[in-house]
Design a protein around this nucleic acid. Structure first.
Lengths: 172, 172
DNA sequence: CGCCATTCAATTGCACACAACTGAATTGTG
DNA sequence: CACAATTCAGTTGTGTGCAATTGAATGGCG
């Protein structure tokens, strides 16, 4: 237990880090929820939640996909996707059927209704964009920056977690 | 097909917006969860979740605060904070007591244990920062950009939602 | 062929987030 | 003072998100 002594330290004190930390992690947290809130309002017309919309975006591009692949696109696991997909199925937007070739896998496929919904969804991005006041180019730049962050964070998480890698810093 | 062309307009077509929308909203969603994942690992030692950590950050700065004020700092409502605070209380980190001056209000106050936890939390921001690989300046720039986004989104949500202020009724 | 590890989706348990509502306390108004 | 509107924390219900487990199906290996 290192007794911290710091009163006159010239290094960035831990206290300041704690404040800075609050700002970046809180900023992203708040931004995510703000986005969620705007999407919630706009998607209400379509009867979709924000994560359900994300799933539909993927399906509109792929039309048919096993749950596993869907999870890879969205970085979500079956614990999240299974109940979500059941709701989409109950809403009549998708159909789920076990693959004939591999009985473990479940194929998710759009219904006609699900395909048709895309036409109404085409307005969503424009309404979102006008909410942000950002242009296409600004959006692109910001997205690239955020993706860098995500990539770095995922890499760090992968180093700390799995059975293969032993963290040098044990919990003590 | 849906290839509606806008003769004289260089506007981004709906299809492109949909694709771009997929990327930006997914990016932010993924980044938020990636952050959550990294914090989860680091905070496990402290016995805190990420939102609980955010609450503690505020309390370490204010020491005593009514639930309402806490919610304003974090943009969270009592539906989220009440159970969260009960868990922090069960963990012995905070105490909740009805205000004497206003019986509607509940004052949240750190216990000695809660205050003491701050010393262990001082390492967290450094570990997060190293996970991102971003320097302080990069973090500042990105944060500013994200905050712009949040501000714009909140403003848009406020216009669309409230009871009195329908867009038509809005002040010109 | 039989056995075992792996791969899937689904389920369970816990913790947010948020809308909608409840109920108690306070404030504003006459 | 009485009464209605407002403020505040708490509760309920729905929908993620994730860790851990379950159970069926598959593939590899001898």
């Amino acid at each position: 237990m290192a007794g911290a002594s710091y009163p006159g330290s010239m290094n960035t004190p831990d206290d300041d880090w704690l404040r800075l930390d609050q700002q970046i992690c809180f900023s992203l947290h708040a931004a995510s929820r703000a986005f969620n809130g705007v999407y919630r309002q706009i998607l209400k017309d379509l009867g979709l939640t924000y994560p359900q919309y994300l799933v539909m975006l993927v399906l509109w591009e792929h039309d048919e996909l096993p749950v596993k692949k869907l999870g890879e696109h969205l970085r979500l696991d079956s614990g999240t996707l299974s109940p979500l997909l059941k709701r989409l199925e109950a809403a009549g937007l998708v159909r789920r059927e076990r693959s004939a070739r591999d009985e473990r896998s479940v194929e998710v496929r759009l219904t006609e209704e699900g395909v048709a919904l895309r036409a109404r969804a085409l307005q969503v991005p424009r309404r979102i964009a006008s909410s942000t006041g950002f242009g296409p180019e600004e959006v692109r730049v910001l997205r690239a920056r955020i993706d860098e962050l995500t990539t770095a964070l995922d890499a760090a998480a992968a180093l700390a977690e799995p059975q293969g890698g032993s963290p040098a810093t044990g919990p003590s």
